[in-house]
Design a protein around this nucleic acid. Structure first.
Lengths: 191, 191
DNA sequence: TCAATAAATTGACCATGGTCACTTTCTTAA
DNA sequence: TTAAGAAAGTGACCATGGTCAATTTATTGA
């Protein structure tokens, strides 16, 4: 067993930097592995020695973004209302909405949440559950179910609203309005 | 403008039949376009004259299956309980669970539900909303929100439960048990 | 300092979905 | 019946993600 060479870290950094540049100019959707390795000045094989596949690079790019949003949420006080909650979630919603491809990547990984090898996106979604659960314990919402279950539901409705956002007809209704309806029904049932 | 030639229908039928054979023996995941055209005895270009892309073939294969399940649900009486509802949904759940790839395809199209050009999967998901809505109007569940919204939520939790199914850790809990918890909380809040 | 070994890198090559200019087959109107 | 035009079909070719045997570079123990 030999320690990781600093060369490795350098190469990985080059790959990530090139990727970020490409995303900055053309979005996630238009990133090509060939372009990344060209800009990073390494061979294609090197890319796949650092990332299992292209999706794995996406994890490394998108995961940290999601974690930043969660950091921000964690700093807030418990939400006092559905609108308050919605405001807190808005950065995540905006980001996931920014490109269909981004939403697809997040979706693809959401199922992997909590699998053995934690990838950054799955980890973020998992963490969202935890952050929200802690947070909801002190919120003025229904108390007949656990905060963890409340959080699960919020996640489910978030994906639902985003999925419906990316379609023509349903688009008439804004994602914001849709989320408000979902969350009111989920968090404040008046049965 | 000239009417569709019967040759066209024949070719499409050959492509679908070959596809179904391949799926039968190796599952959806292992279907290759090259194999389909080889078995159907047509050129590759012909495939893409009939189907926009591979995903579009998947729509044509998976969509009808979903519609069959919905036909069956439609024939049932309104559910008398969450378990009853769950029993009705089970064939869909089983099918969506059968292969990760199948779930991915459905997921990918769910966002397209109700878009202008109705594809069979999106159409099915849309129809699921309608079928459930009609159905839920006569069910003994909460009445503070519309049947359509109830149905939306069921869809959201269905995807959530399926997504979590495809991961190692959460797998301990069966999708059935998970759905029961979700549906109880959604349909019968006791706040 | 020098093998020996392990880690990192390379790039030719492959797999597979998708395109398109060209050919073949069909339909229609006179 | 036939010529013109439209629809259907063809297969060589491309784009892009991914593999792997061979090579280079680093580390380690003597």
């Amino acid at each position: 067993m030999v320690k990781t060479q600093k060369r490795t870290l350098k190469t990985r950094a080059k790959l990530l930097e090139a990727s970020e540049n490409i995303v900055r100019s053309g979005g996630y959707e238009n990133l090509r592995v060939e372009q990344v390795v060209a800009q990073a000045g390494v061979a294609k094989g090197t890319f796949f020695a650092h990332f299992k596949d292209k999706d794995s690079l996406m994890e490394a790019l998108i995961g940290p973004r999601l974690h930043e949003f969660l950091d921000e949420i964690e700093r807030r006080n418990a939400p006092a209302s559905v609108d308050d909650l919605l405001n807190a979630l808005r950065p995540i919603i905006q980001f996931a909405m920014s490109e269909r491809y981004v939403f697809d990547v997040i979706l693809r990984h959401s199922g992997a949440a909590a699998k053995a090898e934690i990838d950054p996106i799955a980890g973020a979604i998992n963490r969202m559950g935890e952050v929200l659960a802690v947070w909801l314990a002190n919120a003025p919402f229904r108390k007949d179910i656990s905060p963890a279950l409340l959080a699960d539901g919020i996640g489910a409705f978030l994906f639902q609203a985003l999925a419906l956002h990316f379609c023509a007809i349903h688009n008439a209704q804004s994602i914001d309005e849709r989320m408000r309806i979902y969350l009111n029904a989920w968090l404040l049932p008046s049965n």
